[in-house]
Design a protein around this nucleic acid. Structure first.
Lengths: 342, 342
DNA sequence: CTGAAAGCGCTAACAT
DNA sequence: ATGTTAGCGCTTTCAG
């Protein structure tokens, strides 16, 4: 019934060759004559041979596998990125081991340990919203495993990073809003431990400062990156009877949370309260109203990360860490557009 | 610099034990005395030992790893399912190797071969929209690797399946529409080779038949599961000047495509043309208008699949294939609700 | 309670 | 062009 999988040895015996010859032939090693190679391949095929990747990796001391750690996947931003990563990996003959931290630092750490134990050739990580201890990344470095941080980046030196220009992106959004006439602007921000929380806030602040608009502390509310933050945030401001005219949210899910709360409170977007967010999702076009945002090119984030990682993997030694910044673009839709206010 | 990772042997030498003792101690084998175990563990910890999973698996002939093949991930349905699968796996100490076929049968096959080569303990697959050749699944069976099909299921015998009650779900949606007074109903369907295409169509047909409404062949248009199908479909019907009053789409992305086309054509949803779809995504609540749908409980689909798979893996032999059907629920929002028509 | 021997399936280095 | 030897790091008998 359960047929035992055929090994190099099985083929060797059948053909009266050594396993080495078989192994080489199957990998097109020039040692082996074309005819023999052909013969061996056809027999392998016929016998239904599949290499045992565990064994191969163990022996070859490289796995052709890349580990990925992301905080979430059921959000457009990450699922789009992951899809691109898979694509890139497929085209370059790499396997991906994807792990999900669920925004939990402990879990993130365990995942990275597992990836190390699996002897992945390199790791791409987007840190969780609560990651504050960076020891594990030191461990990775000491092990000599190439590492690229993408989008969510810890504050440590000498690392590969691929990110969007968060500060500039946020600045553009707020500047646009100000030019539209907005003054009462709130920011539902991320925590400042994490780059995207910090930088997007700075971008917001840059713009407000530049146009001499005072920032109301109660209107800068730091929190997580999910719907809850947006929902709770708006609910709270409403309870305080302290609503701004516009809310700039640190991520798209936070904006969705604002939409939820607004519906519940019977606030009309964008008339009663307007929204603009960082991060783009195809569906935002079809929200009611369509949501304006700062676009982050997910495919570029993914491909740049992979590219740098593979370079690092394939550069014997002394690879200089690279830091890539990808420009953002402001996409205007139903919210935060002048004509809505006319 | 690049520090070599520490092995059982390293610990053994340091402690003057054999590797076997170390190995056993680390796995809490009763052979080893509690004190020795404790000592060994602390030293292992101190030396920064990480097991080499490749080696462990090779030797233990099981990987504690499950392979997953899905057609897409940047769609809410799949990303939600995958997240649940990861969760379940994490709690049961399994690793997941996720692969994405991109709706491509060739790629799907290669992924499954890779998973076999990686010696995964079991596989969950949701087949691509174009998979017609089922040989590879036979191969999996012959290898004795437990296999569960989820949501998208091929027409073969004696397999584990976990799916939603597609026919009933579609029926409920159409029946509801009919009771609302709709007669001119189109169905943007999937291809009939695949269960979800076929069954959802049957559900549609059941309802139309039961209420004696003739089905217009031009209004049943089969296609893929992505946005394009919906977009092209509506465009084409519009070109033919042959618009229905309601479109029932086989998936949520297809409905999105309809939204896109409708916007372009200046058709108002739900007044000019109404939409209801199979498959739920949180964001549908915030579309304009909110989209009614047949809900598929993604977490149940995921957990049932994992549960059956693990059972199958752990049942020595003679496991009877199981077939799970999960009931659906009709969720009414902005579209396909009577009050819109009043 | 501890360890020696053997082997998982494969590949790299070195013969022949 | 082909094979021999050795070993990747771990676990599973089986002896002591």
């Amino acid at each position: 019934m359960t047929e035992k999988s055929v090994t190099l040895n099985d083929i060797a015996k059948r053909l009266n060759y050594s396993t080495v010859t078989i192994s080489k032939a199957l990998r097109n090693h020039p040692d082996i004559s074309p005819q023999t190679t052909k013969l061996i391949k056809s027999v392998a095929e016929e016998m239904g041979y599949t290499p045992n990747i565990m064994a191969r990796n163990l022996s070859a001391r490289r796995s052709n596998t890349i580990g990925v750690v992301v905080p979430k996947i059921a959000h457009f931003f990450f699922s789009a990125i992951i899809e691109s990563i898979y694509d890139y990996a497929f085209n370059h003959n790499y396997e991906i081991i994807l792990t999900v931290s669920q925004e939990n630092a402990e879990r993130e750490k365990r995942h990275i340990q597992t990836l190390l134990a699996m002897k992945v050739d390199g790791i791409i990580v987007s840190i969780s919203q609560e990651t504050k201890n960076y020891e594990i990344f030191e461990t990775v470095r000491r092990r000599g495993v190439p590492l690229v941080f993408m989008d969510r980046i810890p504050a440590i030196e000498n690392i590969n990073t691929v990110q969007v220009n968060d500060r500039e992106g946020a600045f553009k959004a707020i500047e646009h809003a100000i030019k539209l006439g907005y003054r009462n602007i709130a920011h539902f921000a991320g925590y400042s431990d994490i780059n995207i929380g910090r930088e997007r806030y700075y971008g917001f602040k840059d713009a407000m400062d530049q146009y001499n608009i005072p920032i109301k502390p109660e209107w800068v509310v730091a929190g997580e990156f999910g719907e809850n933050h947006g929902y709770d945030g708006l609910m709270e401001l409403h309870r305080q009877n302290n609503l701004p005219d516009l809310i700039f949210t640190v991520t798209y899910p936070v904006a969705l949370g604002v939409y939820m709360a607004a519906r519940e409170l019977n606030l009309k977007i964008p008339d009663d309260i307007d929204v603009i967010c960082f991060g783009n999702a195809k569906v935002q076009n079809f929200l009611s109203p369509p949501l304006s945002c700062v676009d982050q090119p997910t495919n570029l984030l993914a491909s740049e990360s992979m590219e740098i990682l593979l370079e690092n993997i394939n550069s014997a030694d002394g690879f200089e860490p690279r830091n890539i910044q990808i420009p953002t673009e402001l996409i205007l839709r139903g919210t935060c557009r002048k004509f809505n206010k006319e």
